[in-house]
Amino acid sequence: MIPLSHYLLLSLALFSIGVAGVLLRRSIIIVLMSLELIFNSINLSLVAFAHFLQSMTGRVFVVFTITVAAAEVAVGLAILVAVYRRRKTVYVEELNEMKH
């Protein structure tokens, strides 16, 4: 039987890789993909906990998380398209309007 910590470590690995992607990549689309990775790692740990605590609630919660993630991707990509149309760039560091 696989202990809970294994799942959590895997989740941590995926999460960290996702964070590294967010921090390191310049392309906004890769950043969005990294965000999806982070989402998945969280889902994984949620399901693992639900499994080990014998709870259905955790699983139902994952359904909601996945739905919200899908919504987020849809809106995020739409924003990306809109930004690209206007600025002709997908590099995050060139989008620094928040400074002013």
């Binding site: 895997l10 690995a13 995926l14 890789i17 996702g18 590294a20 992607g21 390191l24 990549r25 890769i30 993909m33 990294s34 990775l37």
Partner: peptide, 8 residues
């Protein structure tokens, strides 16, 4: 893990 590294 390998594919995740691939993504980034």
């Amino acid at each position: 893990i390998v594919s995740a590294i691939g993504v980034v």
